[in-house]
Every structure is written in C-alpha cells, then in structure tokens.
Nucleic acid binder design. Structure first.
Length: 835
RNA sequence: GCCGAAGUGGCGGAACCGGCAGACGCACUUGACUCAAAAUCAAGCGGAGCUCGCUCCAUGUGGGUUCGAGUCCCACCUUCGGCACCA
C-alpha cells in the first residue's frame, strides 16, 4: 500500500478554517482562571509581511500555544498601527485614498497571518486609524492637556525636509530621520509637546522593576533619560547685574572657573552685546549657527567656536570677574544654556581654553602630586585634594562638592539640582494621515479643548495631499472652520495631527476591551488582563515605543485608569533576519517572502526553521537549505506516524482485550528515557529560556531515538509494546504542537483522537524515568580524560575509586606514581591526581 | 571618546552550576535501495600524527586561578549595537 505523503498545502488551510470556525483562540475574562497576556508589537500595514514579522509572530505564537496547553487563560491579540506616512505617500503617488489603501493592506496581511497558522483572537483586533480607536487618542490627549501635561510652545524643532514634518528627539537617528534617513534640519515652530520629563525620575527608577527585560534595553533607556546630579550656580553679570545661572556636576572646581560660555540662543545674549562693537559680528555668528542642522552642530568633531561678548560674570564664591563668551557647542536645550569653563579639570574646556588663550587654574591636586607648579599638558579629571580654593583648601574634592554647594545655598546663589537629558516629547505632525489634535483656536478664548461629547474630531476625506501648505489639513476649509466650544464664535481647528507613537503607546490596553465606547477601556477588563506578561518585538523600539508606553502607563496609573506601574512584565527583543549575511532588501534582490515559503513548504516548515536557526534574541541568517532540513524533519515525522498507525488501531492488541504489556526491556527503557528527557528539555527551553532552537533539536533527538529503536526491533515487538510506544508518539505530537500546529493537528486526528491537539494539556515529564540504574562516568588522571566506565548510580565513592584504580586504561597512568588527591563528582566523573 | 554585547568545525548553532567541546541541523563523503536519478534508510565527518588502538593540538590573542576553564579573573585584538560637545 502506497503511503500517503505529507501535503502541507492541503492540510494547513483545512485546519486554519477549522480553528477559525470554532473560535479556538477567543479569550474571555475569567477571574477564576490565571491569565497570560502574550503580545507581539503590532505591524504597520504596509501590505506585505516580511521575514522580520514572520519571526516575531512565530515566537509569540509558540508561547501562546504553549501557555494555553499549560492551562493559562491566554490572551493573544493582534491589530494595526495604521496611521502613518506610507499611506499618505501612496495617496500622492497613485491617487489612492489613504483609508482604502490601508484597509486593503490590512486584509492582505491578515490573510498572510492566518496562513501562518497564528492563533490570534481576531475579535479583539484594533486599527488605530479607525475613528473608534483614534477617538480615544483624542480623549487621552485631552486628559494630558487638562493635567497640564500637553502644552504648546514655540521652539526650534527637528524638521525632516523629505517627510515634510517635525520629529521627536527619539526619532532622530544619527542626525537623520528614523523613517527615511534624510538629514534633519531645524525649524522654529509652535508645536504640541507631552511633558514626559515630569516622569523622568519614575521612568528611570522603575526600570529596576523590569526583571524580565534585557539588560541592554534598560541601559539604553537609562542613557536616554540621562540623569545627572549636580549643582546650579548663580553668577552675576557685572555690566547689567543680571543673574546668570549655570549647571555643573563639578561644583568643587568652582574656584577654577576662568570663563563662561553661553548658547547662541541664550536669552540674555542680546542684552549683553547691545551697543557693543562686536554686536553685529555676534549676531551674524548666531544666525549662522541657527541655520546649521543639529547634526553638524552637535557632531563631536565639529570645531568649537567661541566669541567674546565683552561682558563679564562675577563668580559668587570669590568675586572674580571672568569673560563671557558665546559658543556653538553650548546647547540651550540642556541645563541652563550656559556653562562655566574649568580648563584645568575638564579636557574639553582645556582644549578650548588653549585655543582661545584663556587662563588655566588648578584647583584639585591628584594624591601625592602638585599640578600647580608647572603648566598642564592636559586636564586632570580625577579625584584629589582641593587647592587654590580659599576656605575649602585641603578638602577631598568629593567633600568639596557638598561643602561648596552648601555654601552657595546659604548665600542664595545656588543649590543641588538633578537634570535629565530627556526632553519633552514633541507629538505634533504636519501630516494628514494621523489623529487630529482636538483643539480649537478661538480669537476670543484662545486654545480651547474640544468637549468630550464632541469626540472624535473626524479626519476629513478627500483632501488634496499634493498641496503645498505647511500641513495638509490646512487645505480643507470645511475642517478648519468651526465654532468655539466656549463662546460659540467662529474659530479654527488645530491642523496638526499626532505622532503615530501616541497611538501605539496604549493599544495594548485597548485589546483588553476593544469595543468599549464609553471609555478607552473598562477598568475591570484591564485590571484582569494587564500587564502584558510577555512582550515581543524588535530592538529598534528600545527607547521610542517602549519608553512612551511606560510613560502612558504611569500617567494612567496617576489618573486611576489602570493599577499597574509598568505595562510590559517581560520583554523579548528579537534579532533581525538576514540573508547571506546581508540585510534583506529589494535593492540587493535577496528578499525571501513568507508567502513563497508557505507555498513551497508550508507554514509549519517556515515556522520551524525560523525558530530553529538561531535563538530569538540573536540575528538570524535565512538559509534555504536549512529550510529544506526542517521540511525533511516534518516529513520524517509524518512517515513515522503513517508507518505505525497500527499502534493506534485495534490491531495492536491482537486478542481484542487490552493485552498485558510485558515489562519494558533495556531498549524500551532507553527510549522512555529519551522521551522524558525531551519532555523536560522542551518545557524548560520554552518556559524559562525562550530557546526554541534547542527545544526543537530535543524533539528531533526524540524522533531519531524512535527511528533507531525501530531499527533494532521487529514488527512483533512493536505490537507487544504498543501501549508504551503510543505514549512516545503522543509525546512527539504534543511537543511539536506549538511549533508546527497544522501537521500535529492532522496527525493527532489520524491517531484517532477527537479533540484538538491544541486543547490538550502539556505533557509532564517524570523524574523517575530520567534515571538509570547505571551511569557512564568519565575517568580523568590529572584532569585529562583517560577512560570511561559504567557504574551503578549510587555506588559509594570508595567502591568507585577502587574500580577506577583497577581500570585497564587507567592503571598505566598510575604506575610508579603517588596519588595526591581524588575528586569524585557524582554521576559525572572521577579525577585522580598523581605525582 | 563613553556604555554594552559577541568572538566555538566548511556553515547555522549546542554545551544551563567550572566536569567527555562541537548536541541538533545544513553542506560534504561512503554504503544500501534503484536500470538510473530523486526521495528514503544506514554510516562517517575539527586539525595533525600513528603501530588503527590511541596520542598530541584545538573555543579571537597573551597571561592567571583550579585537580580540571569555551565557562571564572586580568590585559589585549576584532566585530556588532547604543550614546556621543549633556556641562
């Protein structure tokens, strides 16, 4: 009889339809059950899944399926990060409606996801571009606004000339736009910001709660927040009497200050230079700096330029007068926009002072050295003893930091200060395809929030996106013209839309209650399902999306809308997918699409390979032959079952009644050990280590073990041990089920089981089957392996050593030597040290 | 420059607590089946030496700790990632 071959193309759609029709992956709140929230970062609906998607979603699906089998009430939702620039560009290029274009893409990608056999609860699907969703963006924006956390201000902002919109700091990568790479320039614009800086300390502190996050991501966030503890010091401008504040982390070097530098944008600057001979020169300089992009201006190798203003500042600690300069390297956006120059103890200042022939004064001596006697060759940035510092001389400089700051506090000219590198989050975008910011400008009342019951402010349709106005919404008179919600007079709407990261900062909460139309989500649902227990996504969001989401969660906690401090309990940052060592890209022509893989081998093979080729957090190289290998493995499993279906039929027990199975022999016991070893290994690898690659290899080993068992035994033995072999076969299917859901469902059904394999409990290993009465131990002499032997498991050390000394391979090494020491590691090895 | 991660066969990768380095897979070689091929099954597969049983060498480099180091410590090299005038 010809054996039926493995036909993925037939069985995969069959089972996908079956799961769908039977609502297999619907999740319901059930306080009696322990929940588990598995979430993968939702995609932008570009129209096509790529390998990176296939990888994240495969990882998430294995976890979701595994955890269901472990008995958790698993929520595994999916949706669409559907606002954004590509839809708008498609509209410009092909005249498509962004909404229709997006909807068509969503449909395509959803089909692809289903073809991969991903176990999503589609009843919870959300699309951020639907009014039912973005309405709550607006609602949340107003909540921020009412709490003083959303504000508008005019400031120099990052501008991407190609995307024609502003960018948040987090979205500027190496001086270029995160999306298109174009060099980012400056623009002075009135823009909406969210006050994420109010949460800087908590965002930093609570990183310690995130035990399940990769250290790397936490460090990146820590650096981004950039907390720095220091002192604010008030100098006085001699000529005008103005206060001039600086921030420093080295107040101990205050006596070493020999000049001061202001940022070109410093508000005091025009006053300082007014009417001086150098006024015009400095104005030109400032103009020139402002035209430069942030990239040029802040790149580390840009030349440091300083110009003397002619004014001088008075050092509060010693009344000394020092020159005030203006410099291109001082940033208005950090600290106070003014820095004190201490050339002796800061290498940057040292180089600058040398260039401009400013004095260098040592105020900290390294232990056992005196730097004051000869000219410095470089700055001394280390610790030491204070000198040239009046009453503070002789103090260790760390103490001096406190002493000087306290001294300043007493005289009202300074104090301790913590500063952050983090800036407020700029959320305005001059784009069409985004959430309209729900604000109305009234000539009488100023900016007014759109009342809650008037939400959503709908995005108008039929806008000419090829227009040249600052923002596409300015093209629509119908949209702009409105009435003031307060006084009813004619007013105009805000035309900026929100950064799409706003949408993705809370979508994981909406999944808990996706149809809710009274609130963004019902607290009851969110309190049950949240936090996300396992979040999976790309490392590229280490700062952006993950920081914003943490910020939202903390704000919502303060507002009493959620009761969690952190949204994502555990985070898995998966690596990238490469092909032949290079990034997959159209220009290289090395793109492999999930579609092709599904068509050629089936989803199960594709999933298996992408999980087998590398551990999830590492980069993965796509290799066609590796895919073949996984395909071969699945066919091998298929054949194994097809050839042994008799085990599952009545024929196994010839007489009809269940035959008494004879006691297992050594060969069966070994197979049983392999079985339970795999049960243990796969469980631990998925649950504790996310090492799907080694989990899969353990299943392969078990299959290999079955093959070799069959090689060593005959037909009748298989029949005799059928009940045992059935258990082994069941284990294989169950272990493989999360990875290859279709083939396992088919095999399970063919074995005669009625209920789905995905509704089974995860098999549990038994320690007793892992043990053997004999073990092979390694014998070493002086730490080198010299032999092996089989010993009873719990043979006492003495007996074991006696056997070692008698061992024919070992004896030659011991002859004429003195045994100095012996080491016995139970179950592993015996080492004899001789001299 | 600062912070972080990683360097293991021809390749992807194992080795979890310091205990047989190279699991599993790919590629390759050989045998069986076949008219032949594919598929499949079986066997081999880090390097060198040789009396074919072993011996020596081998986890980026150089040191160290230890009976024993891919694993721990010190220094260095290389690659990748993040930050980068942050006062």
């Amino acid at each position: 009889m010809a054996m039926e071959g493995y036909k993925a193309a037939e069985l995969e759609p069959k089972w996908q339809a079956f799961w769908q029709e039977n609502g297999f992956y619907k999740a319901e709140r059930d306080p009696a059950q322990k929940k588990y929230y598995v979430l993968e970062m939702f995609p932008y609906p570009s129209g096509k899944l790529h390998m990176g998607h296939m990888r994240v979603y495969s990882i998430g699906d294995v976890l979701a399926r595994f955890l269901r089998m472990r008995g958790f009430n698993v929520i595994h939702p999916m949706g669409w990060d559907a606002f954004g620039l590509p839809a708008e560009n498609a509209a410009k290029q092909h005249g498509a409606d962004p909404g229709e274009w997006t909807a068509a893409n969503v449909k395509l990608m959803k089909e692809q996801m289903n073809a991969l056999g991903l176990s999503y609860d589609w009843a919870r699907e959300v699309a951020t571009c639907s009014p039912e969703y973005y309405r709550w963006n607006q609602w949340l924006f107003l909540l921020f606004y009412k709490n003083g956390l959303a504000y508008k201000k005019k400031s120099p902002v990052n501008w991407c000339p190609s995307c024609q919109t502003v960018l948040a700091n987090e979205q500027v990568v190496d001086g270029g736009c995160w999306r298109c790479g174009s060099e980012v320039s400056w623009k002075e614009l009135e823009q909406w910001f969210l006050k994420i800086t109010d949460y800087a300390e908590r965002l930093l502190e609570d990183l310690s709660l995130l035990e399940g996050w990769p250290e790397k991501v936490k460090i990146m966030q820590e650096n981004w927040i950039g907390r720095s503890q220091g002192t604010d010091i008030v100098f006085t401008v001699k000529e005008t009497g103005d206060r001039l504040e600086v921030f420093t982390t080295r107040p101990d070097t205050l006596f070493g200050v020999t000049y001061m530098v202001l940022a070109p944008e410093h508000p005091l600057l025009p006053k300082l230079i007014a009417g001086t001979p150098q006024e015009q020169k400095i104005r030109d300089f400032v103009q020139q700096i402002r035209r430069e992009s942030e990239m040029t201006r802040t790149s580390a190798d840009a030349e440091k330029i300083g110009l003397f203003t002619g004014a001088s500042a008075v050092n509060p600690v010693n009344g000394e007068e020092i020159p005030i300069l203006v410099g291109n390297y001082v940033l208005m956006s950090y600290g106070t926009g003014a820095v004190m120059g201490v050339p002796a103890h800061d290498q940057r200042d040292f180089l600058f002072a040398t260039e401009y022939e400013l004095p260098v004064r040592v105020v900290v001596n390294p232990p056992g050295e005196d730097l004051t006697t000869s000219p410095l060759q470089e700055a001394y940035e280390g610790t030491g003893t204070m000198v040239n510092s009046g009453e503070f001389d002789g103090l260790p400089n760390e103490e001096g930091q406190r002493a000087i700051t306290d001294w300043l506090i007493q005289r009202g000219c300074g104090g301790y200060r913590v500063r952050y590198r983090l800036r407020d989050w700029l959320i305005s975008r001059q784009r069409y395809w985004g959430t309209p910011i729900p604000i109305v400008y009234c000539p009488q009342c100023g900016p007014v929030a759109v009342p809650e019951e008037k939400l959503p402010v709908l995005l108008p349709k039929g806008i000419d996106l090829t227009g040249t106005k600052q923002s596409p919404l300015l093209e629509s008179e119908d949209f702009i013209k409105t009435r003031c919600p307060q006084c009813g007079r004619e007013a105009r709407r805000e035309t900026d839309t929100m950064d799409t990261f706003f949408c993705s900062s809370w979508y994981y909460l909406r999944y808990a209650d996706p149809l809710q139309d009274e609130l963004p989500f019902d607290k009851k649902e969110v309190d049950y399902w949240l936090p996300v227990d396992q979040y999976i996504g790309g490392i590229e969001h280490a700062v952006l999306h993950l920081l914003y989401s943490r910020f939202f969660t903390k704000f919502l906690l303060d507002q009493g809308l959620v009761k969690i401090k952190e949204p994502f309990q555990r985070l898995l940052a998966q690596g990238m997918v490469y092909k032949d060592g290079a990034k997959m890209s159209k220009s290289l022509g090395n793109v492999v699409n999930p579609d092709e893989i599904i068509a050629r081998y089936g989803a199960d093979t594709g999933r298996l390979f992408i999980l087998f080729a590398a551990p999830p957090e590492r980069d993965l190289d796509w290799n066609e032959q590796g895919v073949e290998g996984c395909y071969r493995f699945l066919r091998r499993v298929w054949r194994l079952f097809q050839q042994n279906m008799v085990l599952f039929s009545g024929e196994a027990g010839e007489d009809g009644d269940p035959p008494a199975m004879p006691p297992l022999r050594r060969v069966e016991e070994e197979l049983q050990r392999a079985q339970h070893y795999a049960l243990k290994k796969v469980t631990v690898d998925i649950e504790e280590r996310f090492n799907f690659n080694t989990a899969i290899s353990a299943i392969m080993e078990l299959v290999n073990a079955v093959y070799s068992y069959f090689n060593e035994t005959g037909e009748d033995e298989r029949k005799r041990f059928a009940p045992f072999l059935r258990e082994v076969f069941r284990s294989i299917v169950l272990l493989l089920a999360p990875f290859a859901p279709h083939i396992t469902e088919e095999l399970w059904q063919r074995c005669g089981y009625k209920e789905s394999v995905h509704r089974q409990r995860w098999p549990v290993y038994e320690e007793k089957y892992l043990q053997s009465d004999e073990m092979e131990i390694v014998i070493q002499v002086n730490g080198k392996v010299r032999g092996k032997m089989l010993v009873p498991v719990d043979s006492p050390e003495g007996e074991l050593l006696a056997a070692v000394y008698q061992h024919e391979r070992i004896r030659p090494y011991l002859e004429g030597k003195e045994v100095v020491k012996t080491i016995v590691v139970p179950g592993k090895l015996a080492n004899v040290v001789v001299r």
